[in-house]
Structures are given as structure tokens and as C-alpha cells.
Amino acid sequence: MSLPDFGFYVLCATAIVLLAAQAVIHPGEFVQVFIFGLTQGSIYALVALGYTMVYGIIELINFAHGDVFTLGAYVGSAILGFFAISEGGFTTVNLIALLLVFPAVMLVMGGINVAIERVAYRPLRNAPRLAPLITAIGMSFFLEGVMFLWHGPATVHFPDILPKAATTVAGVFFGFKDVFVVVVAAILVALLAIFINRTKLGKAMRATAQDRDAAQLMGIDINRTIAATFFIGALLAGAGGMIWGLYYNTVYYQLGFRSGLIAFTAAVFGGIGNIPGAALGGLIIGLIAAFSDSYIGSKWTQVVVFGILIGVLVFRPTGLLGMRVPEK
């Protein structure tokens, strides 16, 4: 065991012991906070997947991805407005609206992201490495601008259409919404994993991520594969936006910039380019934030999250699940 690895395990062990102590002293509070972290982390995980896929394939930190996520919530809120939904209780209309709108938003966001890729990133495929980074930042501002123009700076209400059933079990309060968020996120991640590992396009993506030139020589259409990656990333971001809206019921135009940063951090945390890693990273960041808010103090959360990130990277330079790639 090398020294950095040792440091890493000491760090993990300390964190687990401290949390376990809390779990023993106040089990109710611990489980409650765990649920908060899990729901928030599930959403981060969905967004992080988009980052990690895009980074894996073209080494671009897609700063606009968080805004695609937010835009998903905006679009969802707008489309839901066409239905005679009821915010008071869960009606059949609500169910139908949900079943129609959820995939619709995912597809719309997928289309938008492919368009973004076509306009802002594809022409720069052979440009200096940082050029697409700047267009990504530009697209991020642009999307925020679209949302700003649409609804202004104030928070936007997202219809509250999920069942409001909630219950208390052994002092722990949770509702249908909490279950919904975690289950939907888990299903989506599972579907993605199957897609990447079992389908031809998934294989093409993995090949392109590993070695673009070799993949091209094998007859893979690089442009199509990259566009597909953006499309799938945005499907998940759109789903994330919908879930966010259904769960929190408020969005604002700058939400994505910050959440995107956190989600990207989650992707790095798990090992960038690694799909289970991104999902795990998202969950862990959500949990860290919730535990820090509740045990350390909310003003330290930012310091704790990024401090742990730096710590992990120092001890484990490729993230939690990242593979040690041999240096070229």
C-alpha cells in the first residue's frame, strides 16, 4: 500500500467513524439527514453523468450542461402549464401529464444539446483545447440569458403535481416525493449503464472515448457518436431538471451554473469519464452537503465539500473509481 493510498483510507475511515458515532447517538436525525442527502445527491448524479460522458469523449468541461439541466425545469414547467393539472392533490390528469411531459422534456433537452454541440463545439474540434471551454462558458451565459428573458430574475414556480403522501416512521419523516426522486434516478442510471454496455452505439461511445483516431479507423462515425453522447447527457439533464422541479417546486435561472459546478465536482470525485463513478460521486457529494449542513454548520459546507474534493484528489489523483491510466 502506497502512502497516498494509506492517507486516503485514513481519511475515509475517520469520516465513517465520525458519522457512525452520530448514527448511534441520534439515529433518527441521522437517517433523516441521510434521506435529504440521498435525494439531493440523486439529482446531482443525473447531472454529473452528462458531464462525465462529455468529458470522457471530448475532454471538454461542458459548463453549459448545468444550464441545460435548469432549462429542462423551465421547459417542463411551461409544458405542464398546458395541462389542467391540480396542485391540490394527485389526479389522473396529473399522472397523464407527468407521463407525457417527462419524456418530452428529456427529448427537447436532448435536441437542444445536440444543437449546442453542432453550433458551439463541433467547429472547434481541432482548435486549441481551451477554445471550446470558452464557447461552453458562452453557451452557459446564453442559456441563462434565455431563461432570464423568459421569466426574469425571480424564482419560477414549478407545478407541485406529485402525490403529497408523507409518513413518519420511527421519527423519520419522508414522503412519496423522496422515494420518487431516488427511484427514478436509479432507473435512469441503470438504463444508461445497460445502454453503454450492451448496445452498439454504447460500444462506439466507449471506443471513441478511449481513442478517437483508432475508433475512426474502425469505421465509427465520430461526429454522430459525439452528438449521441451530447443527446444522452442532455436526456439525463432534462430528467434531472424535471425531477428537481417536481421535488423542490422552485427554479431560478442561475441555478444551473452552481449546481453544474457541484455536479462536475461530483463527476471528478467519482473519477471522470467513469459512469458508475459519476453516479456515486453525485450521491456522495449530496450526502456530504447534507451532513455538513446539519453537523458542522451550513457556512462551512462549501469549504467541506471542496476540501474533501482536494483531499481525495491529492491522495487518489484519479478519483474514487477512476482507473490509473498509464502515462503516454
Binding site: V33, F36, S294, S298, T301, Q302
Partner: peptide, 16 residues
């Protein structure tokens, strides 16, 4: 407790 807009969207832990 304190929070910053861009950092916190989930206040449930604080409220709890």
C-alpha cells in the same frame, strides 16, 4: 445558521 443563495437550494438539513 447561514447560507448563500448560489450554494444552497436544499434547506431541509438546516431546518431539521
Amino acid at each position: 445558521s447561514e447560507y448563500k443563495k448560489e450554494q444552497t437550494s436544499d434547506f431541509k438539513s438546516i431546518l431539521l
